[in-house]
Design a protein around this nucleic acid. Structure first.
Lengths: 344, 344
DNA sequence: TTTGGCATCCAAAGCGCTTTGGTGGCGAGT
DNA sequence: ACTCGCCACCAAAGCGCTTTGGATGCCAAA
């Protein structure tokens, strides 16, 4: 059943039917009702491709998720982010187009997306410091919102980000206030912008307490359970082991916890842990009471915000790119306590 | 730059240019070369919408991922599955369309997808026993491949699945052979088909050893770290606690491991753990040597297989739906050992 | 009675591609 | 010299929708 058929059934022209269905004013209310009833009855759905071709709007948003060849990891936050964004798209009648692209082919992929014209906008995932994709997309004139930011890029662009540096500064201060002086940082790969900012926040808090960061207590890598475990295990064997850990992911924190157990240390008493918590659906930090003290910020909500912002940009391009900075909240769980034996 | 422009530049008709670019035989080789060169030079990309409208093929595959309202979990395996499928689509020039749909609106969503006609086929995620979506899709005449199976549906349909029952039967037998008699099952939600089959495999192995399953040693729920922990903690307090655990996910296994530690038990000596391992990118079971003894099967590979199968179905509809049953391999890690104190 | 304006509806021209059903020209066969 | 067949190309008709630019009829105003 297509427009023409429907129009024929109704004894109307396709024009009128189209306008009736799309809420144009120049169609009598009675007619509109009649058309809508018929559309429902015959279960008419306008063909998307035709609509797209005619309007020039794809009614779809592209998500390009980079896949590193070196570190073959599919970031576990994507699923939740996508779920959040998907909700928004569904409500607005947009489709979500996913493209998995090896790091090296990013540029080609973006250009191709642009010229194929099957999306109206793009969400940029996993920005790095000075990420070239931002300039590229601006150049291509494709509306986009970055999930995160790219340090070093000065021209304004649309983004939704968590205030990572503030969160980690706050978390570090929290540990400092508890008397900890040797605090370890188990971070994500620091080519990623969010990890960079977290380190900066960490260092800023240390500096404010007149402490300088100890490179032996800082590690960056893929945020897995094994990473947390291995890093903690090694650090705990130092002559001056850390009394607290700050980790970038719940998985890493779980790894650190395991290392503590292996050494017979009690979490929250002998050694404290603070972690960032993205509130992933399948990785909760406890039910009501948090297990780990954490800087918490829902990545799913970030997905919603990104999507909303992008759709708004597409509907009516703003003169200035908007941006949104979400503040993580510090929730206190059982993984932290005063530094043992007083300050060093 | 569109077809017409390009044709004009070349002094050819759009017809010829189209045929040249699409590899039709009735165009002189010299002309084809000339056209291709020009296309490259002007960076011409055929407009996808137009192509789709003209050919009637969407060149896109839909993934409908159900989102439960009760258990608000975004299944962590989706990300990896999608990554695998995405590779295949990219190579074949297909797009991947993601739709996040609440459980209740599944049917509506499928019908809508069908009538909007913006995909050529669908991957069905998270099938349940007797899943109604299969009949629906058959009814709609939309090519589809199920990732998993739906017990109770007898008419043949295309699927790619892991032999879950065999895997868990094998894992259980492995534990039985080690002398374990009280084996706990920490399963996924048993409305999901894969979880059902795993339980069946588990019970089959027990039955073969003349043991009957103990309901107190069986739990089903969301496969999180907390689930594993809480389940194990409770079971270890039974008058006859299990000497081994079989879990459906690495996360659950990690939770069980935590419960063991809390009780001062040594994994692999006092209590054994076998888990299923989907080989998720961010959740590895050790680097070279596996930490947990596990039934291992890459969900990413399953994604590739599903995608490949679906594309093949679309290119040339087979008379009979194909199917593929992947066998999980049992890898032995440090989490298992002989049952302490001999058999019970 | 004429005119203008408004409310409704419609014909037809796209959107950019594919595809059907040709046409023109050239070499081979007779 | 003429026909036939094939090679290389092209004009035009879709695909199913939107949108421009009217057309028609009716009523109020003059």
């Amino acid at each position: 059943m297509n427009l023409k058929d429907l129009a024929q059934h109704l004894g109307l022209s396709p024009t009128t039917v189209s306008r009736a269905l799309n809420g144009f004013p120049e169609v009598a209310e009675a007619t509109r009702v009649r058309v809508e009833a018929a559309a429902r009855e015959y279960n008419y759905r306008p063909n998307t491709q035709a609509k797209r071709l005619a309007t020039g709007r794809a009614m779809a948003i592209g998500h390009v998720i980079p896949i590193s060849t070196q570190h073959e990891i599919v970031n576990p936050v994507f699923a939740d982010f996508i779920a959040g964004a998907g909700e928004v798209y569904a409500r607005a009648g947009y489709d979500m187009l996913l493209t998995i692209v090896p790091d090296a082919e990013q540029e080609r992929a973006y250009r191709e997306i642009r010229s194929k014209g099957n999306v109206d906008g793009i969400i940029v995932h996993g920005p790095r410091a000075g990420d070239p994709r931002i300039a590229l997309l601006e150049d291509l004139g494709l509306p986009f919102v970055v999930h995160g930011r790219a340090s070093g890029i000065t021209r304004p662009y649309a983004f939704v980000d968590v205030n990572n540096s503030r969160a980690f500064e706050r978390a570090t201060r929290f540990l400092l206030d508890l008397g900890h002086r040797r605090i370890a940082l188990v971070n994500g790969i620091e080519a990623m912008d969010f990890a960079l900012r977290r380190r900066r926040g960490f260092e800023r808090a240390l500096a404010a307490a007149d402490l300088s960061p100890d490179p032996r207590l800082m590690v960056a890598g893929e945020m897995t359970e094994a990473q947390g475990h291995d890093a903690a295990r090694a650090m705990l064997r130092l002559s001056a082991p850390p009394t607290a850990f700050l980790t970038s992911s719940l998985l890493s924190a779980m790894g650190v916890r395991r290392a503590l157990w292996e050494d017979g240390l009690v979490m929250g008493r002998d050694v404290s842990i603070v972690t960032h918590d993205d509130e992933l659906g399948y990785l909760r930090n406890g039910a009501e009471e948090p297990i780990f003290t954490a800087t918490r910020s829902s990545v799913r909500e970030a997905g919603r915000r990104c999507a909303t912002m992008l759709l708004r940009m597409i509907e009516s391009p703003p003169p200035e790119p908007a941006s949104e900075l979400l503040e993580a909240v510090l929730v206190v769980g059982g993984s932290t306590g005063p530094a043992p034996g007083g300050a060093t």
